[in-house]
Design a protein around this nucleic acid. Structure first.
Length: 198
DNA sequence: CTACGGATTTTCT
DNA sequence: GAAAATCCGTAGT
């Protein structure tokens, strides 16, 4: 497989809307156990900061969990959701501008067999093989299981760390829709801040 | 295709 | 103590 260039700091210093759209088609890489697990990013969402009622940084007061978002862009933010799953985010924008991009889906590229193993071993009990193959990494919780990304991977620098993004493809078309499962976000729930490769 | 329920535990009020 | 940026099987359209 062709090796592409790793994205540098300047990419992540853009606002989260720009970063979220630009990440579609790029390659998310996790170097672990001496090999590369990677997948093409196919779905993202932008969380825009203190005024965005859907964002964890809504209100602008940092907590132990969210303080990483208040630093410079280009770091990972991984959190536990619904007591069971992890969500992988990339911090965007500059210092004291707590924006982030949720990676919602990837298509396995390198290490697909390992990803299948991870899903079989670490996913919910009783799930069918059929479901695992069909839905390997097409959701925020699923891609974290497949690529072996957990909460202890929060706060990693994508410029120099074991998790990073590389140039990959330019998507033919990107579809824009409202974000998923943020019904509580009032006037921000219908903002078209989700980007899907189409 | 959509709708619903249950699993599970950290985080913040 | 309640809520949560989810997932999966089942049942219905």
């Amino acid at each position: 497989m062709l090796r592409h260039e790793r994205l540098g700091r300047e990419f992540y210093l853009q606002d989260s809307l720009t970063v979220a759209r630009a990440l579609v088609g790029k390659l998310l890489v996790h170097e672990t156990g001496g090999l590369r697990l990677s997948g093409k990013i196919t779905e993202t969402e932008a969380y825009m900061g203190p005024f965005d009622k859907a964002a964890h940084s809504c209100g602008g007061v940092p907590t132990e969990r969210t303080k990483i978002m208040y630093g410079v862009g280009g770091f990972t933010y991984v959190y536990l959701i619904y007591g069971m799953y992890n969500c992988f985010n990339i911090v965007a924008s500059g210092e004291n501008s707590p924006q982030a991009v949720l990676i919602r889906a990837v298509e396995a590229a390198e290490g697909r067999e390992i990803m299948l193993e991870n899903r079989r071993a670490k996913g919910r009990r009783g799930q069918s093989e059929k479901s695992i193959v069909k839905n390997l990494s097409n959701g925020p919780g699923k891609l974290c299981i497949a690529m072996d990304i957990q909460r202890n991977h929060s706060g990693i620098d994508l410029v120099g760390g074991e998790i990073y993004v590389e140039e990959f493809e330019t998507p033919k078309k990107i579809i824009t829709t409202p974000r998923i499962n943020i019904d509580y976000a009032e006037e921000y729930k219908d903002k078209p801040w989700r980007f899907v490769e189409g």
